[in-house]
Design a protein around this nucleic acid. Structure first.
Lengths: 338, 338
DNA sequence: GCGCGGCTCTATAACGTTATACAGGTGATG
DNA sequence: CATCACCTGTATAACGTTATAGAGCCGCGC
């Protein structure tokens, strides 16, 4: 169907191998033949058949980014960054949606699909250390976000405990005492939530505030609806909180909605903080204070590490990298940054 | 690296071709040999090398969905649907981000990447009929959303003019008279915006309301920030509108934010309507009235049409399909549905 | 004049799969 | 009993690319 190496070779009057060498620069080619070949390529509009190239080279040039939900703006924003970074390095990034499903994550890990993908960036939700260690597939794996530690793979994440500290310290600093957390999860399989709860507890203790289990609300997932429902439950308590820290911005936005419905003022009655710095939080009413991870750094680092491994480069430094974050003060805690 | 057909053939004591036939069912195989082969496959854990298969078959099993921005929730929600539909039909969907860039759209159209992709679903923004007609690539193309008409390709979209009618009729029904539109664009290259403006004008006329050019605000893009800025400009008018119809939900949400900042009540002072029914609009304060396209239908139809073309099936019926939409009345127009 | 190294370029064998043509055997049919 | 059709299975040629081995040519030094 398409134009192939043979067509170019005929047109330019050279051999197949020479055309290949012009295209790939694998071996030097004389200046005059190079020009003839290049002209033929331009005229016929040749582009290599990646399937065949892969078959021969053993690589496809495809990497995958697997996230628990495409519709979470955090992952969408991360994906945009990762896609452009991958493109800049000559790779195509394929999005995979695990839908936070354990089977889907396992399938990706040592998956049938792996045969067509050079490497995988995975944001795990339902699997842990054991599953990662047990995987058989040989292609490189980079983990992002959630807490699967002590495995022989690169891992890019923020320091969840420290992030929680920063959020709680801020709420304490503006005078809040009954601070709730939304987004704890019952099972032991979602490490990030646990780390964020741990940071929450530690920061409360450091501020000399009591830890009240009633103020820690569990959720099934981490969407707006989950945050809204949990907030409603918290408001139904005899003595509701004067501040809420959400597992992420979506949960916090759900909480904002529940507060508005119930007629509570934010931040006067209840202050709200999230994590992720999704664009949406800059347009809510009130705007949402948040812990902003460096998404650009996470996306770029994950892609670069993965590609470095694929290409067999020696990667120095520790496997686990913690990327920086900042507290962005906005209206939902009453003290917008300048 | 992996286990291949030859390994299985040796193990089972049969020929390569027989193993291939067992795997693909291309030709009948005797019951006893089939079992021996199947056993060998199970024992060695064979899965076919997709690169080689595709080299031979001439197809990769990859289709692409190219959208102007991944971070627009409308496209993220559409992508989730399309990905699962594609997976159900045995294809892998690759996301492409054109970033609303003309060159990126052109590159995809008759693109270098086409060699690795069996077909393309494109949401065009910067290109029109001529560019689509001029494309050389032979792989199937399905257009979604924007208005590129009269081309020999499948096209799935809502009736933009009718959608505008519905929105404006609703605003008129609740008593609004000075209705603004946000999201017109100066260039003639974004058909959807023009169609939505046309519907807006027609509906105004039908309601006996004057068309006031000052109330039609142009934007550079269709994000929250664009909507916010345009709304600010509208409020600066001597006689501001009592209702706003946004090009999409994001623009409308930006308008909500500008209204809140300026201290206007929604819907009492200004009513707001968007298009897309993104989840975010169910959690804004106030919740956002919107025209809800049937995203599931659009995503499924686009994928199915594309795959049908790829597989050479005869597709009957017209090329252009207009999918249904509904008006969802929420707080921003003061009359939530039951 | 001969051998040798360096430089271009070529011929060709893979990579793992699928489709085609064919071989061998068996049973049915004339 | 010969012929034919059928059913299983095999050998092999692609698909388009890249890497390896080597061929031809030129100039240089002995």
């Amino acid at each position: 169907m398409g134009v192939n190496l043979k067509d170019i070779a005929q047109r330019a009057g050279v051999s197949l191998a020479t055309v290949s060498n012009v295209v790939n620069g694998y071996r030097p080619v004389g200046e005059r033949t190079r020009q003839r070949v290049q002209q033929a390529i331009d005229e016929l509009g040749y582009s290599p058949n990646l399937g065949a190239r892969h078959l021969r080279r053993g690589r496809t040039g495809l990497i995958a980014l697997a996230v628990p939900e495409l519709t979470n703006p955090y992952f969408a924003e991360l994906a945009e960054i990762a896609i452009s970074e991958a493109a800049a390095l000559g790779y195509t990034l394929v999005m995979e949606n695990t839908a936070a499903d354990r089977e889907a994550e396992l399938a990706l890990l040592d998956g049938s699909r792996q045969r067509i993908i050079d490497g995988l960036i995975l944001s795990p939700v339902r699997i842990g250390r054991e599953e990662v260690l047990a995987r058989t597939a040989g292609s490189p794996l980079v983990l992002i976000g959630e807490g699967v530690y002590d495995v022989p793979h690169d891992h890019i994440a923020i320091d969840n405990v420290a992030a929680s500290h920063a959020a709680i310290r801020h709420l304490v600093a503006i005078g809040r005492r009954r601070i709730a957390f939304i987004g704890a999860t019952p099972g032991g399989d979602r490490q990030s939530a646990h780390l964020r709860v741990r940071g929450y507890r530690e920061a409360l203790a450091a501020a000399g505030l009591p830890y009240r289990p009633l103020l820690v609300a569990g959720t099934d997932a981490f969407g707006r609806l989950d945050g809204m429902r949990a907030m409603r439950d918290l408001l139904a308590l005899g003595d509701p909180p004067d501040a809420v820290f959400g597992y992420n911005d979506l949960v916090a936005i759900g909480a904002l909605r529940a507060l508005a419905e119930a007629g509570h003022r934010v931040p006067e009655d209840v202050a709200v903080v999230g994590i992720d710095d999704i664009e949406e939080g800059r347009f809510t009413t009130p705007t949402l204070t948040t812990i902003a991870p460096d998404k650009r750094e996470i996306g770029r680092l994950a892609v670069r590490r993965l590609i470095a491994r694929i290409e067999g480069a020696e990667v120095t430094g520790p496997l686990t990298v913690q990327t920086p974050f900042r507290l962005l003060r906005r209206e939902s805690t009453g003290t917008p940054d300048a």
